[in-house]
Design a protein around this nucleic acid. Sequence first.
DNA 1: TATGAATGAGGCTTCATTCAT
DNA 2: CATGAATGAAGCCTCATTCAT
Lengths: 222, 222, 222, 222
Amino acid sequence: MTEPRSASSSSAPEQQPAATLTPRGQRTRAKLVKAAYTLFEKNGYLDTNINDISRRARVAYGTFYTYFSSKEEIFAEVVEQMTTDFRAMANAVPSQPSDTPATRIARANLGYLRAYQAHAAMMAVLEQVATFNPRLAEIRRDARRFWVERSSRAIARWQRDGLVRPDVDPYYAATALGSMVDRSAYVWIVLGEPFDEDVAADQLTRLYCGALGIALDEPRAT
Amino acid sequence: MTEPRSASSSSAPEQQPAATLTPRGQRTRAKLVKAAYTLFEKNGYLDTNINDISRRARVAYGTFYTYFSSKEEIFAEVVEQMTTDFRAMANAVPSQPSDTPATRIARANLGYLRAYQAHAAMMAVLEQVATFNPRLAEIRRDARRFWVERSSRAIARWQRDGLVRPDVDPYYAATALGSMVDRSAYVWIVLGEPFDEDVAADQLTRLYCGALGIALDEPRAT
Amino acid sequence: MTEPRSASSSSAPEQQPAATLTPRGQRTRAKLVKAAYTLFEKNGYLDTNINDISRRARVAYGTFYTYFSSKEEIFAEVVEQMTTDFRAMANAVPSQPSDTPATRIARANLGYLRAYQAHAAMMAVLEQVATFNPRLAEIRRDARRFWVERSSRAIARWQRDGLVRPDVDPYYAATALGSMVDRSAYVWIVLGEPFDEDVAADQLTRLYCGALGIALDEPRAT
Amino acid sequence: MTEPRSASSSSAPEQQPAATLTPRGQRTRAKLVKAAYTLFEKNGYLDTNINDISRRARVAYGTFYTYFSSKEEIFAEVVEQMTTDFRAMANAVPSQPSDTPATRIARANLGYLRAYQAHAAMMAVLEQVATFNPRLAEIRRDARRFWVERSSRAIARWQRDGLVRPDVDPYYAATALGSMVDRSAYVWIVLGEPFDEDVAADQLTRLYCGALGIALDEPRAT
DNA sequence: TATGAATGAGGCTTCATTCAT
DNA sequence: CATGAATGAAGCCTCATTCAT
């Protein structure tokens, strides 16, 4: 029976916390996530439907709902994976204590650009979804804050050390420069404006350092 | 996504080009655009439907299609109005030949921020639509290019005049710094991150100038 | 597009108040109501779906939603018609000032039984729906109260006139005797327990009168 | 209505007749029945699903089908328990050979009202289910007949003894008066119309006796 | 026995667009 | 020009029941 949805009680299909799943269940769940990832990347959020996802995962329609209660939910999971991946990739090269700010900035920018290229399709979709889904907008907001706060702290530290000019405010600078790097990546990679990765990374770094009054690294002289 | 039957219908009555309309027709058309503007701002593109628009414009459902062939079309028109408005507002204060680059940049940034605040809701909607509608993505792309090209030319000019350091590339710089300003505005105004307009404009200008190696204006001394 | 249902605004399809409809609209609406009536009677509420209704009315699926916002809504309308009809039929024979209480009771009981027979199928469906739909339960409750209040007033009046024994409480008596008649009708007509209309009406009247201490009419002696 | 694949499946494992079960099996079965009872009471038949039941019984989903072949089946069991309980409670006070009819009727009515109050929720659900499930409608019908036949016999006996007026037909009277008591209880208790148990029982008894022409018991005078 | 994953038919509702007056 | 009725594809989610371990 479909009708009366009034009472409802605790009917939620008990979305499996992924831990209590049998191996078979884990496999199915993973298949769904993978299928969803691919489809979201290819068609975006709106043009991907549960039907597509289950079919690509080769499970029955209803099986989807054994693991996720909605498209939003599986999307959140997919994005979480992507975000984790993204960060790992962006931070792939660890910094040394001896690194100058310019070196760190250069590395961070290049890392961000590369991570963006590897996750471009999904980043575009996240951007899409964030415009009409509050919950998923939060995910993006939190990701943004993560970067802003990190930069903000670094800038403040460098400023105390006299490496950044005193007239910039760390919070505003971190927001603005983070926006610069992030949005440039979007423009180049997602929107497809022409660019060369190395040049772009180099230019971003020059602008970033110039903006903060940070000295560029001497080109490793002869 | 639904909105299916669009792709080139059989016999579109070739919507009125707005010029060949009787005065009465023009009024009706204008009512529709106004209603659409309000609703798109309030509810976004996806949650605004033709029904709402005609109702708010107090015309019959079918009348909508006398003037526009699709939701996309009226949205394009609304965005065009908004864009025109936006530019006028952003460029409200004309520059003097004697203005320094820093003055021009400061004025441009403040103008942009103010225009953004005045058009925040629609900018957010445009951002939303551009993520899934190629045609409307073009509109946004063109708008972006408009600003980038203008900045690009200015930077190149300043660079030739020795006012901008030689190691930045005008195109990359214009893209990146344009992204910085535009995205910061989005983050602060649309996403609602805390900011103060004057501080933000000032900081953006310092970063912008610093990035290009442009000297800030001396605070009008004595 | 289907997705984002968040904002919603005033999207309701503006359920036509039936007055503002064009003749064509009125015809379509009426066809839907008629189809719904037939199907509800035949299959009950749960087993009737919008698809069936539109098909039987020979209109497109979506047309249903031009006139009604849900199955519940059209059911409410159908029930309202039925209720009006039911009352008219039950009260078909008007009472004369000279009628004795027993005459009135007899007439009311017979009227009720006959109306019940004519509307049996729908009464059964209303009974069904009232068990799980609060809004429609209200309709039934109000109908019940209508009868109870009417009887209650009559009993009180007769009691003041010394025609009803003093130890019964009009409200309890009206509720209980109303339940007796209504439920007996249900048992006989809907559940199909064997009965003869005239005998049943006669017996109900004897019990009703006896319960209240009302003298039966003398069989019109020779 | 959904619940489709029911109609005689291919190889039902012929559910355990409850007697041939191991003690462990009996415990599991009992847990399921108890859980089902609670949930049916709280949410009604339609809004209770197998998932809820198994979860509340703390057994696996599939385990449900080890003991019951369908939701209908477990409901039937639950109702049976309820009915047994109901009768026991309604007949709690045994009658003495010396009791007058009025005493018996009064006791029966009070017993019925009390039993109804104790089982109100489930009675309401049974009422619901009986409207769309023929098999469960039978259960209710049988229960009704049980009371009707008993009353019918009593009335006939009293009539033979000259204690009930001759013009009432025992079958019609039993049906009608049974309906009166049963439906009044439903109206007061399930639908929540205002009533006082003692007054209600007293009034029902007066009406019942009056209807049959049975003398009320003298208030135990001096 | 017990478990819990898998199935898939069903039903509701939305809404851009077309069409007859 | 205006009107508003008609269309029907699309998509989401539920849940009783079956099946493989």
